[in-house]
Write a protein that binds this DNA or RNA. Sequence first.
DNA 1: CCGACAACCTGTGAGC
DNA 2: TGCTCACAGGTTGTCG
Length: 309
Amino acid sequence: MPELPEVETTRRGLAPLLVGQRIRAAVVRNRSLRQPVPRALPRLLAGATISGVARRGKYLLIDCGGGDVSREAGAPLRAGMRPGESAPAADGEMPDTRIRTRRGGTLILHLGMSGRLWVVDGATPPGSHDHFDLVLENGMVVRLRDPRRFGLVLWCEGRVLDHALLAGIGPEPLDPAFDGAALYRATRSRSAAIKLVLMDGRTVAGIGNIYANEALYHAGINPRIPARRVGRARCERLVDAVKRTLELAIDAGGSSLRDYVGSDGMAGNFQSQFMVYDHAGGPCPRCGTAIRGIRQGQRSTFYCPRCQR
DNA sequence: CCGACAACCTGTGAGC
DNA sequence: TGCTCACAGGTTGTCG
């Protein structure tokens, strides 16, 4: 499910619901994801205000930097205290401004192979693979479901783009800085197949198996060609195809995000526009030749042997 | 530096 | 029906 278009679709769905909201609690039911969910996460998140929902590659970044100035950091909400109400300062003392300004940080989420974020109400019982909840003061719950547990839930203080997991990622594919010249430069030393290099996050962020297959089809490039042998003009074409494919998929709401923000949420339907992915043996939409299915780097590759040279 | 491969984990569908 | 196997949208680490 989650490649860049699905993560972006999720981001766009969540952002208007989350930005400006205060987090009441974080619930961790299973810490064993790709990396252990930090033990301190519930403490760090409780009381934080969400100031933004961003994306880098396939990582979702929930900015909790909005200072929590209405109650003392670390102090639990007292029973009966209304959300947003200030805790009274200890008798006679001035409130300590140091602890009233939250340090802030970013919640880093990755959906792995099988992760999804849902918005449910607080009464919805969690399923067996619902590992993490973000409970908002307004009662909404953002729930992470990830059966295979290749996903991530991490916390980062300071500049999140410098985080070890993000620092080495290549340019955003939809950024103007990712152009034919950039891809050409990045591939000169790469003898691996162009499809594998395209899926390598250091080359460009967020291109997974589906969209690597689709973009190479649209560009008319054989996925097995060594990257360094893809010339200037073909790099231009490939970048155009990557951008066009991703934008179309985002417009379609991703490839299979169903009900991710409740029962009336968007249902992505980009699957219906796949030209080659999962179409082995079927006819090429352009020339009718049978789509070929092969293995590259332990992933399935699909291409038209006639249209892609 | 590069590339090939295994590993992490659960669910699903095909074939017997 | 039930078993076994291959494979699934991602990433990281190890080895040669």
